[in-house]
């Protein structure tokens, strides 16, 4: 998306959240709902980072823990732990998937021109899941490409590896 920007003044809003004191952002239009963490039903024989499924007004929504997805250290869920429910575009149509984050922070207006390409972060974090980076005066926010990161087909591949 960052690549095909023509309008220099195009502004998009991003919801930012924290995982392990790092700031991440997702396009706000993808966010369906933010809710507090509550125990969910585990789905057997799935990767560890897939915490289970949640009842979102009658729809069964899988929940992914981004800490575990990014191979970070596990932490106990606290009262500020949130589930951000996102709508993900896939080949088979839109799906709804939730992600677990330590806390939500802010909504940022980001000019598309200000988005920088993601740096090479080494093997620990695969940059193809990054849409880009946005740097403010005091911090650096990684903008996630959730369509890639939360692609159900990717789950399948990863599940095979696991």
């Amino acid at each position: 998306m960052a690549q095909d920007v023509v309008d220099n003044n195009a502004v998009e809003q991003f919801l930012t959240f924290e995982i392990d004191n790092e700031a991440y952002g997702v396009e706000i239009l993808k966010v369906k709902e933010i809710r507090g963490w509550e125990p969910i039903r585990a789905i057997p024989n799935t990767p560890d980072y897939l915490k289970g499924a949640l009842n979102l007004r009658g729809a069964i929504v899988p929940i992914v823990d981004l800490r575990e997805r990014f191979n970070m250290e596990k932490v106990e869920y606290s009262p500020v732990t949130v589930v951000i429910v996102l709508s993900v575009e896939g080949e088979k149509g839109d799906t709804v998937i939730g992600i677990v984050a330590d806390a939500v922070s802010d909504v940022l207006d980001v000019k598309m021109t200000q988005i920088k390409e993601a740096p090479n972060l080494g093997a620990k974090i695969d940059t193809c899941y990054m849409q880009g980076m946005y740097v403010t005066q005091d911090k650096m926010i990684l903008l996630l490409n959730i369509n890639k990161l939360l692609n159900p087909d990717e789950f399948e591949n990863l599940a095979d590896i696991a």
Binding site: A53, G58, I60, V61, F155
Partner: peptide, 24 residues
Amino acid sequence: LEANYRRVEGISGATILGDGSVAL
């Protein structure tokens, strides 16, 4: 379960129990 995720072997679907939680 496939609507938002994918098929899981041994599970044909999910349902919602009276207390709002999910059961497979």
